[in-house]
Simulated scan of single mutants.
Amino acid sequence: MTKDDQPGSTLPRRQLGRALRDAREGAGFTLERSAQLMEMGKTSLGRIEKGQNDKVRLRDIETLGELYGLAAERVEELKALAQQMATKSWWQASRHLLFPGYNTYLGLEAGASRLSFYQPLLVPGLVQTLSYAKSIERNYLPNETPDDIQRRVDLRIRRAAILTRHRSPVTAEFIIHESVFHTVVGSPAVMAAQARHVADMGTRPNVSVRILSLSASLPPEGVGVPPYIMLDFPADSRGFTAEPPIVYTEGAIGTMFFEESDDVKRYREIHEAIKSAALEEKPSRDLLRQVARRHEQ
């Protein structure tokens, strides 16, 4: 488990760091010995292996590759990853608007192949309507300028493109508590449109929406569980192994990433238990449309 506010821990950085660590261990070097031979601090090399550096010098990759006996082709692949790190993501211009740790999450979300959400409090950002998102931002950040609120909303809405893009849309599963749609955000009209939008998104082949109804008996595994997102990653097209899955959670005082395999396994068990108590997909859509009609009345 790591508390992470490192802006560099996006997918290419993590892949590069993991590949260098695996190469070091495969060559039989300790972190201390490698750092000594590289004439750099142990902490500096450790940050590279953890994907926490904004930049990694290409000559350092070449030297590490020579030290670990990597083939020239593999070194070039690692250098290509380092060059990806220098490319600014589309949300970087709005980094000052992001909560601590969220920049890291966006970098991981952009590279994920599957997202699994549990949300008992709010409509998840990826399926929020424009009006709902604006109402949320105004309620939570009343001192923000209208321009900053609009930028936050634009950022949130733009993220949703990963679900609707034509090429390789992300597979996403949403388990949302019914109470989320009874809690009025903005106005009943906003909530009606929001409920219908989530129902419509659930008809997409890559999106699953399951509602945990008010009458559901929550399994013991789901008691006291905060909102979370599980992220699964694909293998790289150049042969890098898939990044291990991660669980991202948000709390009142910060964000947390769970990366240890036992922690992720436990969250998967919790997710399956909550899902077993939720409605199937079509009944979930039917319920959302019923809630929308009630708001419209």
Rank of each mutant, 00 (worst) to 15 (best):
T183Y: 08
Y140P: 01
I149S: 03
E178Q: 14
D148Y: 00
H177C: 15
I162S: 02
R159D: 13
R138M: 09
Y140M: 14
R196D: 15
H182G: 12
E144N: 11
S179D: 11
E137V: 15
H166M: 02
R158A: 12
R158V: 00
V153E: 01
H177T: 02
V198E: 07
G186C: 09
H182Q: 13
R156T: 02
A160G: 07
A195E: 00
R152M: 12
V184D: 04
L141Y: 14
N143H: 11
F174C: 12
P146S: 00
H182A: 05
V198N: 07
P169E: 09
R156K: 13
P142W: 04
A189C: 02
V198T: 10
V170D: 02
V170H: 12
V185E: 14
Q194S: 13
P188H: 05
V184R: 14
P169S: 11
E178P: 15
N139L: 14
I136Q: 12
Y140F: 07
L155P: 05
A192C: 10
V190W: 11
S187M: 08
F181K: 14
T171N: 04
P146W: 03
D147L: 02
R196V: 02
T164Q: 04
V190S: 10
Q150I: 06
S168D: 15
R151E: 13
H182Y: 10
E173G: 09
D148I: 00
I157D: 01
A133D: 11
S168T: 13
I136P: 07
P169N: 06
R196C: 10
D154Y: 09
G186P: 05
T164W: 00
T164C: 06
R167A: 15
I157Y: 05
R151T: 04
R156I: 04
L141Q: 08
R167E: 15
H197D: 08
P169R: 01
N139M: 14
P142A: 08
K134I: 02
A172D: 05
V180N: 10
D154T: 13
A189R: 15
I157G: 04
R196T: 06
H177E: 12
P188Q: 11
A189T: 14
A133H: 03
S168F: 13
E178V: 11
E144F: 07
R152T: 00
V185H: 13
I149F: 03
M191Y: 07
A189G: 10
A189H: 07
R158K: 14
P146C: 05
R138E: 05
S135R: 04
E137Y: 09
R158T: 10
A161P: 00
A160T: 15
R156G: 05
T183P: 01
A160E: 06
S179P: 06
A195N: 06
R167I: 12
I136M: 14
R138N: 02
N139D: 14
I149P: 05
